[in-house]
């Protein structure tokens, strides 16, 4: 008899979360569904003791700490989990270097879709252009993001509203309409 391998609930959830994350970044601006609401599932799918995490939220920080990750300041973090983005955050995140663009951070943040600023996204993964309405970010966030990054240096953004996800990688040019 050969046993059919079956993923555990944890494994299945991490797999589905990453599937959404991967496609969100491959198709910026296209909304994806996460298996459940919140940022915790992204911690589970990505974070372990090789990571340096910044996480203002106490419960999420506890979860990240339990995976073995180090809790650090935003400048030193490779992953930042924040329910609300603070205005100075784009300037504090690691952007990597031209030699090692992979050292740029991944920002996983809460946002509100369908209310707020109308932004137009262009770049790899976008068929022409895509217009999305994203709220819950500081007023001049997109301008600050553009100033902080010089491609290929930069950081990736995974914006989470409930169980919905929009990805904005560093390669995406964001224009506020």
């Amino acid at each position: 008899m050969r046993l059919q391998p079956v993923p555990s609930d944890f494994e299945a959830r991490c797999n589905a979360t990453f599937d959404a994350v991967m496609w969100a970044l491959a198709r910026p601006g296209v909304m994806r569904d996460l298996p459940q609401a919140g940022l915790a599932q992204v911690v589970e799918a990505l974070i372990d003791r090789e990571c340096a995490v910044h996480c203002p939220d106490e419960a999420l920080a506890m979860l990240a700490r339990r995976t073995g990750a180090e809790l650090v300041a935003p400048e030193a973090a490779d992953h930042v989990f924040a329910e609300t983005v603070t205005p100075e955050m784009p300037d504090r995140l690691a952007c990597g270097s031209d030699l090692h663009p992979e050292d740029g951070a991944t920002l996983v943040a809460g946002a509100v879709f369908g209310a707020g600023q109308r932004v137009c996204l262009t770049g790899p993964g976008v068929d022409g252009e895509v217009i999305v309405i994203i709220g819950g970010l500081p007023g001049d966030f997109w301008q600050r993001r553009a100033r902080a990054m010089r491609y290929p240096m930069g950081f990736e953004m995974l914006l989470v509203d409930g169980a919905r996800l929009i990805g904005v990688p560093r390669s995406t040019v964001v224009e506020v309409l």
Partner: peptide, 22 residues
């Protein structure tokens, strides 16, 4: 599940995110 252990998968996931972004 899928032969690779959790830490191997998480590492590849993190690197795939960066690969797609650049």
């Amino acid at each position: 599940y899928g032969f690779l252990d959790g830490s191997a998968k998480r590492e590849i996931r993190r690197k795939m995110i960066k690969a797609i972004a650049v």
